[in-house]
Design a protein around this nucleic acid. Sequence first.
RNA 1: UGGGGCGUAGCCAAGUGGUAAGGCAUCGGGUUUUGAUCCCGUGUACCGCAGGUUCGAAUCCUGCCGCCCCAGCCA
Length: 559
Amino acid sequence: MNDSEPRDFIRKIIADDLESGKHTEIVTRFPPEPNGYLHIGHVMAICLDFGVAAENGGRTFLRLDDTNPGKESPEYVAAIKDDVHWLGFDWEDRLTHASDYFDRLYASAVQLIEQGVAYVDSLSAEEIRQYRGTLTEPGRNSPYRDRSIEENLDLFRRMYAGEFADGEHVLRAKIDMTSPNMNMRDPAIYRIRHVPHQNAGDKWCIYPMYDYAHGMSDAYEGITHSLCTLEFEDHRPLYDWFLDQLQPEHRPRQIEFSRLNLAYTITSKRKLKMLVDESIVSGWDDPRMPTISGMRRRGYPPQALREFVRRAGVTKKDKLIEMGALETCVRDVLGDAAPRRMAVLRPLKVVLTNYPEDRVELMEAMNHPANPDFGTRELPFSRELWIEQDDFMEDAPRKFFRLKPGGEVRLRSGYIIRCDEVVKNDRGDVIELRCSYDPDTRSGTGTSDRKVKGTIHWVSREHAVDASVRLYDRLFNDANPNAAEDVHSVLNENSLEVVAAKLEPSLADADEAVQFERLGYFCQDAQDSRPDALVFNRIVTLRDSWARLEKQALESQVS
RNA sequence: UGGGGCGUAGCCAAGUGGUAAGGCAUCGGGUUUUGAUCCCGUGUACCGCAGGUUCGAAUCCUGCCGCCCCAGCCA
């Protein structure tokens, strides 16, 4: 670890606790509820939980917080494990469930009753709500609040035994119905739910609530620092209350930090699930989704995600981070790691009129311009080529230094060509360019030091491989769709565009992320790509200052 | 109008009484067979506002304003 690295407030607390001798080992936990897939917000928590422990030689538990059966499933458990591993973290033998502790939790609940600080309430859910009061008015005690310990014990045992229907009774902590903190107004500890559990099966029909189960699970595991997001700040007094009452061997400390929100995306499991259920996206792993599995399928490298949250920092201030910050991290990693290739997304035919019909040359091309270790490859070059439609303009502005009538351009790793003739169809669309090449300008031969301003990519028509390429855009039009009452109203209808592309031959078996030169980073879609029907995802575009200039020019015309 | 948090440049974020780091973005420029990368340079931040304490305040005090969270038998 770099000592000069500025430390966030949590890391400072931990360093202090180590220095003061309060703790000799740091133990943390990442505790997702298996009711959905992990997303970019969880990446933050994962990196923090596993990060601070690892930095201090400590341990981290992956704990599935499965106290609410019916919403949780093994599918989500499997996905969570998969995602954490992929991100680069290892819980080793410390995979646990809140449900692993149901027996101890039950015994401790009995203890709370015996201590006279928990009681069985027989009010309905609606009545309890009314008795709770409001934000500005105190609540009132339930008429069942003063039941005897014996009666409470009996009722709770019978709740456990399955003698009651859902909702008939609930076990509550006896704290203070007039507390200004709503969480302290006799919160529920156990509720009846005749529903099988994803891990415990049908053994139980009463289940502990989060506030009770979470803190005690932390204690059982010897968690020293229980890190969670800001909305649990109000729960901390309750977290501490359970520890005070039950005096477990270990006493964890809850510390809260702000969640990470990404602009133009949502990080609500409920809303993400809605996108999946309504088939607005293809699944939890749709490459447009901010889920870890979506970003993985999209082609984001795990290092980029980790770097992104590192740059974001850990504070208590609400964050809404620009998408560009994430994309920069992705480009940073891929820029070094991805081999270069050539592909044409929107093909325009070019015929080199002075190039022999049956001739094929193999052009040597660098796989990485800055790193010779990547080696070279050979690209077939022939009379008929594909170039990008965007790389030709009939009435080009002065600053456009790609191909234009009468103009010259360099074909990357190939020759300099000149556009002699523009061929159009009946509708006036440009359908072919007739060009001539300069034989003295073959790349790498050094027989000519002629320079032209522009260099464009290309693919030999005869040797090109077809592929379907998916171009992704943000899922929402609003910078903060989390705040929108209806996500449908802020959906970007054009978040996916599919294009029939022409690839250089070597791309047929690309098994890693590559850069399509001048276009961006791409990878084969792990789900849908097949050898006879290639499908590529655009991970992220390259930074494009030309596009930016064009956009500015357009805007200045309008205004 | 109860309670709990948070307010430093467009977005993040250091800084805890001595005169405002850094990253991303932006805007210039250089190199370049990717308009990429890389390299330089680029910000008058009324440190939410107003008072106060002090030789000196983003840092301490008081008052105000704004934003977020809480009334699940969800987590």
